[in-house]
Design a protein around this nucleic acid. Structure first.
Length: 454
DNA sequence: TGAAATGTTGGGGCG
DNA sequence: ACGCCCCAACATTTC
């Protein structure tokens, strides 16, 4: 009897284009295991836990349908994987490489521990088109500017084609112990998520098909319009690995070339860029990439932070975005930039606080993308928005939500405001917002200037 | 993947 | 017809 392989699943919750699962199935019997460690740093936040619950349930059913088994465990991941491997007498443990520093560290610990007990560790290709660190400039230098990074990435060999899903998994004689799915939070705050999403590999494939069938051509322009359905909404599926970027890449390359296709893949490029930055700089979620920002005079203002979180700033596009986030676990990317600029530049609240809120409320929360994007907005990151780039939420609203449809949808108390005043209701007799844009803009510019002088 | 201030130009009203 | 002013429209620069 061939000893089984254990496949350790993390954020690669799919069957297709899964190198570790495919290799394990080739070798013989397979046990898949997922470990939830709620005490780990950057453990899943609230919205991610909701998603994880459903994604694991879907994957368990998908694996069972081809004869396999997915075991769920809780606790410290490396220890649990070691135990599970022993319990089923595994000959090897396979996994997809993850790029986050703490995951890298866990992989190293696991490899060492497995080797010590005579179990083969097998790290398989991970969830990026290009392995972090492999994209370099002509002189071999790491690239800190997105456009240069992406140009070099596209100049290299294309990512390999996706693997088909195994059509059969063999079950071993002995199974490790398992627990049930992580419970859903007791107050049903997740109704809005349930109405918006279909977690799981099938849901991801459907989302990609719907997006590509609708035509990618308008994407180049429509992706900036929160009042339209111009984006793919694949981000949470990508974050949990229910679909791989290789699958997206090759699906897009089967279409005729267009501006929309190029711009869409460029967004995958930002995801790649973020991972490349995090792998190179593990402190990305904590420390500004530009060290001079350590001296920036951020304000401690819990009351204003709470007002921002709850979407009660009085600026319609900001409040709409924050409420869409709370309700659906997702926010349109244009609006993410607007609310982030507001927090960091108008309120002068540290970007790390915004990052933490997003981590808890975003279903697509991804350590690298979240950290890199907050640093980008704050002006302290790689290829960052210059400090003087301060979004005006009124002008941004008027430009990207011209009829106010997005605001009306998420801020119902403004539904009756005429379009002319929808992004500045105070000019039409509505309530005053929480702050003065001109004065806070001046305050931010002065603070940034002072930082530059010291 | 900004916004605001400042500069320039050109049409039109007017004396 | 001419110079002058105003100001919208656009371009440039500054933050």
């Amino acid at each position: 009897m061939i000893r089984p392989s254990l496949v350790w699943l993390r954020r690669d919750l799919r069957l297709s284009d899964h190198a570790a699962l495919t290799e394990a199935a080739r070798r013989g019997p397979v046990v898949a295991v997922h470990v939830l460690d709620e005490a780990a740093p950057w453990a899943p936040g609230g919205a991610s836990l909701w998603w994880l619950h459903h994604s694991l349930a879907a994957l368990q059913a998908d694996i069972a349908a081809i004869g396999g088994v997915l075991i769920l465990r809780r606790g410290e991941a490396v220890g649990e994987v070691l135990c599970a491997a022993a319990e089923c007498d595994a000959a090897a443990v396979l996994w997809s490489r993850h790029d986050e520093p703490q995951e890298q560290a866990a992989e190293t610990r696991l490899s060492t521990a497995l080797a010590a007990v005579g179990i083969e560790p097998v790290a398989c290709r991970g969830d990026t088109l290009f392995r972090p660190g492999s994209v370099r400039g002509r002189q071999g230098q790491p690239l800190q500017v997105f456009t240069a990074f992406w140009r070099c990435a596209l100049d290299g060999p294309p990512p390999p084609p996706p693997l088909p899903a195994p059509n059969r998994l063999e079950r071993p004689a002995r199974l490790p112990a398992g627990t049930s799915l992580p419970p859903l939070p007791a107050p049903r705050w997740w109704n809005g998520l349930q109405a918006t999403w279909g977690p799981g590999e099938a849901g991801a494939a459907r989302r990609l098909r719907d997006f590509l069938d609708g035509g990618v051509a308008p994407y180049a322009h429509d992706r900036d319009r929160p009042d339209r359905t111009g984006t793919s909404m694949l981000s949470p599926h990508l974050a949990f690995g229910e679909i791989s970027p290789r699958q997206i890449w090759h699906a897009v390359h089967r279409l005729p070339a267009s501006d929309g296709a190029r711009v869409f893949l460029q967004e995958i490029g930002w995801r790649e860029f973020s991972r490349h930055l995090l792998a190179r700089t593990p402190s990305l979620p904590q420390q500004p990439l530009r060290p001079e920002f350590s001296a920036f005079p951020w304000r401690d203002d819990p009351d204003s932070f709470a007002v921002w979180c709850r979407g009660r700033t009085g600026f319609p596009i900001v409040d709409a975005g924050m409420r869409q986030l709370w309700h659906t676990g997702w926010m349109h990317n244009r609006v993410r930039m607007i609310v982030a600029s507001f927090l960091v530049k108008n309120l002068l609240i540290p970007w790390q606080q915004g990052q933490t809120w997003f981590w808890d409320t975003l279903a697509d929360a991804d350590l690298a993308s979240n950290a890199a994007s907050w640093q980008w907005v704050a002006g302290c990151g790689a290829d960052a928005a210059p400090y003087f780039r301060i979004f005006n939420p009124v002008l941004q609203g008027e430009k990207f939500d011209p009829d106010g449809a997005y605001v009306r949808r998420w801020v119902p108390e403004l539904a009756a405001i005429p379009a002319k005043f929808i992004h500045r209701p105070w000019d039409g007799g509505g309530p005053r917002p929480m702050l003065d844009l001109k004065a806070t803009r001046e305050r931010a510019l002065a603070a940034f200037r002072r930082m530059g002088e010291t």
